[in-house]
Nucleic acid binder design. Structure first.
Lengths: 229, 229
DNA sequence: ATTATTTCGCGTCACCTTAACGCTAAGTAA
DNA sequence: TTACTTAGCGTTAAGGTGACGCGAAATAAT
């Protein structure tokens, strides 16, 4: 057997799919590359692992230094290892996705550097590397996870109405959900708590404001999707 | 930004959780290490990625050369990156799990080298590295996957009875499932096809033999687990 | 004020799934 | 034959879910 250090190692990177929700639109944060390869093309933010970092540290560093975000929800997705995925050489990428509330960081349209931009997930440009594949894995994970786990709260303000939560679900899942059944399921699951306050200033009836219930019992609800043949 | 090759890279390895099912027992294949670190302790089979390999290639190579298995079901689990997980230095491990039918490879108890052994998942020894954690992730994945995806067939012979399939599910999930309801769900889902033949030589009524239906429609069944508080 | 309009919150009901369980058939052993 | 065990099919009551009705609350127009 070879000695431990004789193995040649590929480079190890993380690539991040950063989701944000704003104005009834689910968006992904993309970077316009200034270098080859894929110069002037849009790609996911990413970077190489430093020897003393965990993968999560690497993600946090990228989020903070490149995008000015901290303390965001993050989850490991999958590890992408196609030998040809990076034309510079062998690079293994561990994909992560993050959910952020853009309004928390003041990064809404227009306020960012022009090499960083939110794209509606329904209208993505052509992406460099294998980032289309990583993005699709992330969107699929988000869609399946939201059906049984309260992951959507990361995308909303601390206080929100059931209608806002409902719109978020319809937007992510890209399907209509009955308003009244959605309300019943979410409430029965105990995912949210009524704060007693109401959202003011709307032109119709003022809806009650809820917050996420952090002490929920798990696996207590399930949003069902239509049959697929 | 640094040039591409200036980054120091950790070593990249795969660790394999190989599940086998035999005599109503779910087992995992472990190796007794002959070298430091963790000399004489049990660990998961694993190995380092070669530059021209995919991760799946690495897994296949380990399965073939160390264990004599080929063409097995395999799935990527998760990537483990604790900086202290390997005392020799920084090693990132991509966990995979595999499902095999031990009788296909003639590796039942006693026929293997004494540094390779099947262990009942309920009675594992102390494992080296962070392999306990990897094993637990694999078992959890298997348990949740079997509830909605026909993954159990990899562990059985090509032809099997519903009772055998039922016992496999009870063994993996570690819970009682009503025999008659299980039968109905599996049949309704179209996961299995009756072959018309029967298992002979049993002392009671001879059950019908089924085989896996490869042309199944997806997401068509769901085994529910009892409520958890 | 009254009315129109829209969203919000609660309730109803029919249908389907599911868990629990009964019953008979098929095979072996006494 | 009888006893016993596993296999295969059926029944039923309870709970969950989808579809949808209706009045309440808020605003704007008459």
């Amino acid at each position: 057997m070879k000695a431990f250090h004789e193995y040649k190692n590929p480079s190890l990177a993380v690539d991040l799919v950063v989701f944000g929700y704003h104005d009834n639109t689910l968006s992904v944060l993309l970077l316009n590359r200034k270098e080859e390869p894929f110069k002037d093309q849009w790609t996911l933010p990413g970077g190489f692992l430093q020897m003393e970092e965990t993968l999560r540290d690497t993600c946090a560093r990228i989020l903070l230094t490149k995008l000015g975000m901290k303390e965001v929800f993050m989850e490991q997705l999958y590890t992408f290892d196609d030998p040809a995925r990076d034309p510079r050489g062998r690079v293994i990428a561990v994909g992560y996705y993050a959910l952020i509330n853009p309004s928390k960081f003041g990064i809404v349209a227009g306020t960012m550097a022009n090499d960083v931009k939110w794209f509606d997930v329904k209208q993505l440009p052509v992406l460099g590397f294998d980032h289309q594949q990583i993005f699709e894995a992330a969107l699929q994970r988000l869609r399946s996870k939201i059906l049984y786990y309260p992951v959507g709260f990361e995308l909303l303000d601390e206080l929100f109405t059931i209608t806002e939560l409902h719109e978020l679900y319809e937007c992510i899942l890209q399907m209509k959900l009955d308003r009244r059944n959605f309300r019943r399921k979410i409430l029965d699951a105990g995912y949210i708590v009524n704060t007693g306050t109401k959202r003011e200033g709307l032109k119709n009836r003022h809806p009650e404001l809820y917050k996420f219930n952090k002490h929920l019992k798990k696996n207590s609800f399930h949003i069902s999707t239509p049959e697929q043949e």
